[in-house]
């Protein structure tokens, strides 16, 4: 928390400009990514395309293990925010249920401005705990 606060203070000084709802040209905005420790290959699909601004919506998450098999029986926690602005998500999204075949519904997604956003998923299943970060330029 402390480092986050510090980075918020320093960013404008370091970048020499002001924090604008800018896209991050270096962001990897792919919708399928391998989790941090390599336990899962995770995909998301927004029920509203493209990912909307200011509108509450759901994401469908698909979990596969490293061998490409669907992972059922997992729980998914959701966090995220705008790293350049030092704030989190405007809502508290949560896993709504499992559709089977490694697919899950996360509800309560909302992005209240354009710019660079990250969404962090914390995944727990019999295969182990791991996290994955999705980046979005809205």
């Amino acid at each position: 928390m402390k480092t986050l606060g510090l980075s918020v203070l320093l960013l404008p000084l370091l970048s020499g400009c002001f924090l604008i709802a800018r896209h991050n040209p270096d962001a990897d905005t792919s919708t399928t990514r391998t989790s941090k420790a390599g336990l899962y290959v995770v995909s998301y699909r927004s029920e509203v395309q493209p990912v909307p601004k200011r509108e509450l919506h759901r994401w469908e998450i698909e979990l596969r293990d490293a061998d490409g098999r669907p992972v059922d029986g997992a729980t998914i926690g959701v966090d995220g925010g705008m790293p350049d602005h030092g704030h989190g998500l405007p809502t508290r999204p949560s896993m709504r249920g499992a559709l089977g075949d490694g697919r899950y519904v996360v509800d309560g997604m909302k992005f209240n401005m354009g710019g660079y956003w990250v969404v962090d998923l914390a995944i727990a299943s019999q295969a182990g705990d791991d996290t994955v970060r999705f980046e979005l330029n809205l």
Binding site: L19, I20, A21, R54
Partner: peptide, 15 residues
């Protein structure tokens, strides 16, 4: 930085 909050057709993110 106004559009950080004053965005969208009503010039507010309703937040």
């Amino acid at each position: 930085n106004c559009t950080e909050c004053h965005n969208g057709p009503m010039l507010t993110n309703h937040d």
